Amino acid sequence: MQTLEATALEDGKEDRHFVTALARGLEVLSCFRTGDKALGNQEIAKRCKLPKSTVSRLTYTLTKLGYLIQLEENGKYRLGTSTLALGSYMMARLDVKQLAKPMMQELAEFAKATVSLGTRDRLAMLYVENCRSSAALTLSVDVGSRIPLLNSALGRAYLAEISVNERHELLERFREYDEQAWPGIQAAINGALDDYRALGCTRSFGDLQPHVNGIAVAFNPGGGLPIMAISCAGPAFSLSQEFLLNEVRPRLIEMARKLQASAGRT
């Protein structure tokens, strides 16, 4: 079975404006994950669902352009400085990160939890900032890591905040990927939208990981940036559903309101 990203790439071929070679090159760069030291052509081909011969040409080209670096000792690749320059430019534009971090850290200490800021990256949510409390037991997540969009509080908040048309288009890709699982997915997303209307936040109580609770709120940072979401999450034994909804939720909603107002002025 193809990955969702590979399915999206195949769908793009129907669009005469879609450049498949460019999409494949970007797919190669995107297959590198936090914690990967280096990847060989075989590993990249497996992750991207592409022929190894195609991947070899792509990695050669990306190396020539500085987006990949080939290691002499084993022939594998790691991300190059050109990729770093692109990422650094994007992160520098995220003024909202600087605005959010003090508030995120304050909430993390209050809840003895992990507070995260993220946005969508294709069919997942990408962490762009994380703050952990000084408590011994909190979730450990890294900036640059991705989490599933559909069953995380962060992803559900994003879906609740975007326009109806955007949400329909995005969910249609999930439906086409797995028709059998779609009724359950649709029910879960409808429940999340109901939560957002009634509570002002989405929740994931054991849905993403067993024994992990979290809630999230999304906001529009303006300035042409995509919708972002903030979550507060932690182990269920130390972060109860009641505490999240009664104590953390109003603080998280207020933080999102302040960030949207402040980012808009910036």
Rank of each mutant, 00 (worst) to 15 (best):
L62G: 04
F243D: 13
T114C: 02
L29D: 09
D142Q: 15
G87H: 05
A256K: 00
V28C: 14
D36G: 04
D121I: 11
S163G: 09
M103L: 14
A108M: 13
R16N: 04
L4G: 07
L84E: 15
D95M: 13
G234T: 04
L71M: 06
V96Y: 01
S152W: 05
I44N: 02
R24H: 07
R93C: 11
Y67F: 13
G214T: 04
P226D: 12
M125V: 15
S145G: 07
A157E: 11
D194H: 12
G118P: 01
L62K: 01
A111D: 04
H17Q: 12
I185K: 00
L239N: 09
L149W: 00
A236M: 02
R16Y: 04
R132C: 11
K49R: 15
R78E: 14
S82H: 09
Y67R: 01
P226M: 04
M228K: 01
A8S: 13
A38K: 13
L26V: 14
A23D: 05
S82Y: 02
Y67I: 08
L29N: 10
G184V: 07
M255Y: 06
T119H: 09
D15S: 04
L208A: 11
S163H: 08
N220I: 02
Y127R: 03
N213D: 08
L68G: 03
E14I: 10
G191L: 05
E247T: 06
Q98G: 15
P210E: 14
R167G: 00
L199Q: 06
G40A: 00
L149M: 07
Q186M: 02
L29V: 14
H17S: 12
Y67E: 07
Y67L: 05
W182F: 08
G66N: 01
T20V: 14
D195L: 02
D121F: 12
G206I: 14
G75V: 11
A261E: 15
L71Q: 13
S145W: 13
G35L: 13
A124E: 10
F174L: 01
S56D: 08
K37P: 05
V115F: 10
G191C: 06
L26A: 15
Y89Q: 14
S82M: 14
P51E: 12
G66K: 03
L252I: 11
D207W: 11
G144H: 00
W182P: 06
L58K: 00
R120L: 12
M91K: 03
W182H: 07
N151D: 08
A21P: 00
F18L: 11
Y67K: 10
P221D: 01
V217I: 12
Y77L: 12
K64Y: 07
G234A: 01
L159V: 09
R203S: 13
D121Y: 09
L252N: 03
D194Y: 05
I230Q: 01
L58V: 06
C48P: 02
Q209V: 01
E14L: 14
A157D: 10
G223P: 09
S56F: 07
N165Y: 03
I230R: 00
P183N: 02
A157R: 13
G234P: 05
L94D: 04
L171V: 04
L50P: 00
V164R: 12
N190K: 12
Q209S: 09
R175Q: 07
F237W: 05
E43G: 13
S204Y: 05
L208Y: 08
I227T: 15
Q70Y: 00
C232S: 05
G206K: 09
G66D: 07
I147N: 05
L107I: 10
D195G: 02
G234E: 08
